[in-house]
Write a protein that binds this DNA or RNA. Structure first.
Length: 554
RNA sequence: CUGCCCGUAGCUCAGCUGGAUAGAGCGUUUGACUACGAAUCAAAAGGCCGCAGGUUCGAAUCCUGCCGGGCAGGCCA
């Protein structure tokens, strides 16, 4: 079925036969990597196996290549030739393309859902923004990449859970309460000083106003402490709801919303400290409790419980990660903003101190996002410390364009987000370029139906009539989708998929302009409809992973 | 000062565990709608892959040192 696998097996067999024949000797063989050659003249697949094997065998790569070529004979293989410094190029008989195409149509919406790794539970924790204000564009990158990564890992067969860690304990929440309190008093005509670390965002005033609208000035009569604690809960509930709403509008959903406060209330912090003490990674000094994170490569040890008895953020985080691993995840992936990268060593050290392999905790750092409008950087407000909110961004450029722009770049690179480009509904926008391909295909099928063409059973069509170069290229590209999913998932690189689907759309548009579909000879017409259907399926499935709509019309 | 990320075409960026002539989009120039959606296509121009060493059959890719930009370095989160 899978030609690539067959080919790998053949190469391996040939190598073993050659060794058995005593042609060359090697106590070890490199993995057989097959790649699509950079140029078509080099065939359908190529391998550098001979060059790699040359190292172990201490022989001339070209000779090893020759030995292998001499020993490969398959009915589906047209020829294998040696090229360049020792590549072996394989030219396959075209049938494999057609059976691949038929299989895509048969698989339909499950094409690209590969493998079954459901034994492996992976958790992805992302966004986890403080519920103290609206999400901004930086969170947008995390939200888009995180949700796409979840989809990608699911497509690759893993059992995946998306989680949001709610920072509903600690300083920032007290500041939130104090800020709302100050705004409330202000609006009630009471003169107050705004808290130094307070949140200046307009949304805080709105929250205070809503409290007044609902409950009037009745909170003026109670003590400051009581009022603060009531406002804390009110604000938290409201901010959290707003967060969920914004994320849903962005196509982002979580399986679990995990409360930090719950960790405190359930005694998880004390418990984890006890475990670390027992394991010898925690000690007392200057009245505080320290994690011996230097034992696992951190620059210095870290305070976990302050000398005033209040736990640091790290304490909750350690308890949280222990909780994650106790839930049975073999891999835990955290998406963090670049400003948190300095936190990695201590977190890894904490995981190691708890007896887990730090490799089980993968931390993906997303570099900063800068917005550009009219070629100029959109500066963030000094006073509120906030840039454009995610919601504003979605309203301005649309969910799909925003997601695509966040996803299309490597997370290691800083992102220059061009607002004008993202919202232009024209040829310069890569999102619409891809969606247009999908809509165009849907239009073709509408058209076909109107003139009474039977579009059922297309996998039965005479696919071997597809012999144009652009048709062949398109089929090959379609066939790469499953392995694209696998490698993107392995490398946690969602942007690869964005590039793939763009390339696919490009090949489709080229084909479309060159080959007439409706109205040609009816056998060829069916074959081309089949091809186009497979493109629609693949684009649709790829976009689904990215969380982007595949429209029927635009 | 130390750590992490980045430096590739005018701009924004790909380039997978080292491999064949370094790619894409935008922008620029020139062409293609009296047949399926021109939000499209075809073609051209455009590169000491930051610099300097090293590793080897072979380096944009790996190592070291510089240079430039971003982000961190709290008993804040």
């Amino acid at each position: 079925m899978d030609v690539k696998k067959l080919l790998q097996e053949s190469i391996l067999r040939a190598a073993h036969t050659a060794i058995a024949d005593g042609v060359f000797s090697a106590d070890q063989l490199p993995p057989i990597v097959l790649e699509v050659p950079p140029q078509k003249e080099f065939g359908d697949f190529a391998t550098n196996f001979a060059m790699q094997a040359a190292k172990y065998a201490r022989a001339n790569p070209k000779i090893i290549a020759q030995v292998i070529v001499d020993r490969i004979q398959e009915e589906w293989l047209d020829k294998a030739v040696i090229a360049g410094p020792g590549f072996i190029n394989f030219y396959l008989k075209p049938e494999w393309l057609y059976s691949m195409l038929a299989e895509i149509i048969r698989a339909g919406s499950s094409y690209g859902i590969v493998g079954d790794k459901s034994k492996e539970k992976i958790q992805v924790e992302f966004v986890s923004a403080n519920p103290t204000g609206p999400l901004h564009v930086g969170h947008g990158r995390g939200a888009a990449v995180g949700s796409a990564l979840v989809n990608l890992l699911k497509a690759a067969g893993y059992d995946v859970q998306a989680e949001f860690y709610i920072n509903d304990a600690g300083n920032q929440i007290d500041n939130l309460a104090a800020s709302v309190n100050a705004r409330y008093l202000e609006l009630c005509g009471v003169e107050v000083e705004f808290p130094i670390d307070g949140y200046h965002g307009y949304d805080i005033i709105e929250t205070a106003q809503r409290i007044i609208n609902r409950d009037g000035q009745k909170y003026l009569d109670i003590s400051d402490g009581e009022r603060l604690s009531i406002f804390k809960e009110l604000a938290l509930t409201e901010k959290l709801a707003a967060l969920k709403e914004d994320l849903e509008a962005f196509g982002v959903n979580f399986d679990v919303w995990f409360s930090e406060r719950a960790l405190h209330q359930n005694g998880n912090l004390q418990a984890v400290c006890q475990i670390l003490k027992d394991r010898g990674y925690m000690y007392e000094q200057d009245g505080a409790l320290w994690l011996r994170s230097t034992a696992y490569g951190d620059d210095k040890d870290r305070v976990v419980i302050r000398d005033n008895g209040i736990p640091t953020y790290l304490a909750a985080d350690i308890a949280y990660h222990l909780n994650k691993f106790e839930r049975g995840f073999s891999t835990v992936i955290n998406l963090w903003g670049a400003d948190h990268h300095g936190y990695i060593p201590r977190m890894k050290a904490a995981v190691a101190s708890l007896g887990y392999d730090p490799k089980q905790l993968e931390i993906m750092i997303l570099q900063m996002v800068s917005l550009y409008r009219n070629g100029e950087l959109v500066k963030m407000s000094k006073r509120t410390g906030q840039s454009v909110t995610l919601l504003e961004l979605i309203e301005e450029v649309g969910k799909d364009a925003a997601r695509f722009f966040f996803i299309m770049r490597s997370t290691d690179s800083q992102l220059d987000f061009d607002l004008d480009l993202a919202k232009s509904k024209s040829n310069e926008n890569p999102v619409y370029y891809i969606q247009y391909a999908h809509a165009r295909i849907c239009s073709i099928f509408r058209q076909a139906q109107e003139v009474g063409i039977d579009t059922g059973d297309l996998e039965q069509a005479e696919l071997k009539l597809l012999t144009n170069e652009c048709e062949i290229d398109l089929i090959k590209k379609l066939g790469e989708f499953p392995e694209e999913i696998i490698s993107a998932a392995q490398e946690r690189t969602v942007h690869r998929l964005a590039h793939y689907v763009h390339d696919l759309a490009s090949l489709f548009h080229g084909f479309y302009n060159q080959c007439r579909i409706i109205g040609v000879d009816s056998q060829l017409q069916s074959a081309r409809l089949a091809l186009v259907l497979a493109v629609k399926i693949t684009i649709g499935n790829a976009l689904a992973v990215l969380g982007i709509e595949a429209p029927e019309k635009m």
